[in-house]
């Protein structure tokens, strides 16, 4: 059984899933269609309800 995981999409969900799996010891292949990861969240200024910087 191949224990690698493919994650399609490098937004916040893809990033979190990749990090969790990587920390658990799995090899993750993260594919993102845009030139960099970050998704819609990188286009946000601040996030609710804490008004933290989105990056």
């Amino acid at each position: 059984m191949n224990r690698d995981v493919l994650v399609i999409g490098g937004g916040i969900a893809g990033i979190q899933a990749s990090l969790d799996l990587a920390e658990m010891g799995f090899m993750v292949h993260l594919v993102e269609r845009l030139p960099s990861i970050g998704g819609k969240m990188s286009q946000l200024d601040k996030t609710f309800p804490t008004n933290d910087c989105a990056l």
Binding site: L19, D20, L21, E23, M24, G25
Partner: peptide, 10 residues
């Protein structure tokens, strides 16, 4: 479970 496993599998 995933979060805990990121620690437990080290």
């Amino acid at each position: 479970a995933a979060r805990a496993s990121t620690i437990l599998f080290k």
